[in-house]
Design a protein around this nucleic acid. Structure first.
Lengths: 238, 238
DNA sequence: GTTTCTCACTTGTAAGTACAAGTTATTTAA
DNA sequence: TTAAATAACTTGTACTTACAAGTGAGAAAC
């Protein structure tokens, strides 16, 4: 089955420019080609170019200055799981490994889940998995994910080790993850978390509770992430 | 001196709708008037309306759904200093007090400042101030701010107690704070911080290091914020 | 009564046009 | 030589038009 997925021009251009930036074709501080040049180069009109540039600016890859141009601002120093959807795409070329701790299983939702759930979600049950993510062989994230079991056949038997959850949802179920909301706290590491993140119990860890929208209305991806920020900071824009 | 500041239409509409949302004219889950209706209501065209709605969606006030409409999503539960510029505007109607700990003074920049500085900034010296912010009488933020002393006459003698730093910069110096970048960590509270935030030393606190752009190119506002997240979470979108 | 289809309405994408406003380098005049 | 004016860029704002694509309600067919 071939799905001729139609990608909008501004998204295509966004991805091209974004790739050029993260791969270093344009370096930090460089001026991007002007909007009119980009129009000519890619055969689109200015509103389309401006939409792509607006999104790049929103995501922190460039900053735009009236009368001057668009300045490239990307740097790979920090981990950027705040601004971009998906941990993998956000850490640059770094060596990110994922270790499955609890393979996807169907469980009931907890009594006091971190976000309010719809009736449909409650009825459908919950797919749960826990993963440890290592950056340059240091354990950084402990990620507990939840998603309602709505139209996701055979998901518990898919192989997650290498591919990301996002890619599996996209490739097998045509579900795109959009943005979402999150709460952030600093908490003392529990015994369990401290062991996985190689910390002493009680040491500070960052705790993110995230709710992500998907292209499937009513289906959300939830994630409780514990983060060791001793070595790396979380990077974000606002 | 009257400055007839010209506000773009899409910003004006953004503010009108934003105010309606936070003040409850439109409630959680309500549908906003359609884009074409907003065009008629405010006498602008669809691109202008769409720009306002796009920014509202970016800031998490609404979510847009093709074929359906724009759904209001605002809730005041959490503290949202991630998504919005300025603490004050982000905490809703809550009782936010600010206590000045160190009044603005001109000091040299530290040797290893948290962000790289331009030569102009280094030469100009640094205006430093420290403030404690209380939410419903609980100390939540300890905020250490830095800004280069570039064209800011008499700033150390302004009264900051009530007015926010942002408002002083805007009203006296015509400087608007834009967005910026930040790093987030979980760290153990130092003795000083733990006392101000009413914690025990070593308890986890959230540490934000922020660099904010201003409408004045080359002038940045830096902020090191320690945050007690025992009671409140930081809220953000991505 | 149930299902299917159509239509009206929503937002998304994309072209085109025009002028305003800020920046920079060049040209011109003192 | 210096300083001001200008011209040639840049992005920002705004209107216009057209069609695509998703949603939901009511009409039509079964």
């Amino acid at each position: 089955m071939v799905l001729s997925v139609k990608i909008p021009q501004h998204k295509r251009l966004y991805e091209i420019l974004r790739r050029h930036i993260v791969e270093g074709t344009y370096g930090e501080g460089d001026l991007l080609p002007s909007e009119n040049e980009l129009c000519r180069l890619h055969g689109v009109t200015r509103p389309t170019v401006r939409q792509a540039l607006g999104n790049l600016a929103n995501d922190g890859y460039i900053s735009r200055h009236q009368g001057k141009g668009s300045i490239v601002h990307y740097r790979l120093r920090e981990i950027g799981i705040l601004s971009v959807a998906g941990t993998t795409s956000a850490v640059g070329d770094r060596n990110l490994k994922t270790r499955m701790i609890i393979k996807p299983v169907i469980v009931p939702w907890g009594d006091d889940f971190m976000f309010p759930l719809s009736d449909l979600e409650k009825e459908s049950g919950c797919i749960n998995m826990e993963r440890l993510r290592l950056l340059d062989d240091s354990p950084i994230f402990y990620d507990i994910s939840y998603i309602a079991n709505i139209n996701l056949p055979r998901i518990t038997s898919r192989k997650f080790e290498n591919r990301s959850l996002f890619r599996i949802l996209r490739e097998y179920y045509q579900i795109e993850i959009k943005g979402g909301e999150q709460r952030i706290k600093a908490i003392p590491a529990s015994l369990k978390i401290s062991r996985y993140l190689q910390l002493r119990a009680g040491e500070p860890v960052l705790h993110l509770e995230r709710k992500m929208e998907t292209s499937n209305p009513g289906l959300f991806l939830y994630s409780s992430i514990f983060c060791n920020t001793k070595k790396y900071s979380i990077f974000g824009r606002f």
